[in-house]
């Protein structure tokens, strides 16, 4: 298909520019002079675990975007996910937990 060069350049500039602006926003607003208000520090602390937990839920939800939930009843996701958490609690070795969990997941969905 033919796409105009100008459109592609515009697309790169717009998406790249907006993404940088969003990432820089809190630094521009609270970072220049003076300390940010105490509640910003509080938000920074609680948002870290909150956002990670949210992303975990998001990741699990995204597996059922293109295939019906009832096809597997989330069994591969549950088995692999629980394995990762238990291994991490036991061995405290992130790479081990992630690799074992991913291999289990790949084997289960490809069988």
């Amino acid at each position: 298909m033919s796409v105009s060069l100008n459109y592609l350049i515009g697309l790169v500039l717009v998406t790249g520019g907006v993404t940088i602006a969003l990432r820089a926003f809190p630094f521009a607003v609270f970072g220049a002079g003076g300390r940010p208000p105490a509640f910003i520090g509080y938000l920074g602390k609680v948002l870290a675990p909150g956002a990670i937990a949210m992303l975990v839920v998001f990741c699990f939800c995204s597996y059922f975007k293109d295939r019906p939930f009832a096809e597997s009843w989330a069994l591969p996701e549950a088995v692999a996910g629980i394995t990762v958490v238990l291994l991490q609690l036991w061995r405290r070795n992130p790479l081990l937990s992630i690799m074992v969990g991913t291999v289990i997941y790949m084997l289960m969905i490809q069988h």
Binding site: K45, A48, P49, I52, A53, L55, V56, C59, F60, P76, E77, A80, G81, V84, V85, Q88, L89, R92, P94, S97, I98, M99, G101, T102, Y105, M106, M108, I109, Q110
Partner: peptide, 24 residues
Amino acid sequence: RGIDFAMTALFLVILTDQCRERAN
């Protein structure tokens, strides 16, 4: 297929470690 589970697993590992701390 399924290799993208590494990403989910990474988040799970980080979450597990964060939750060792009661405040989190």
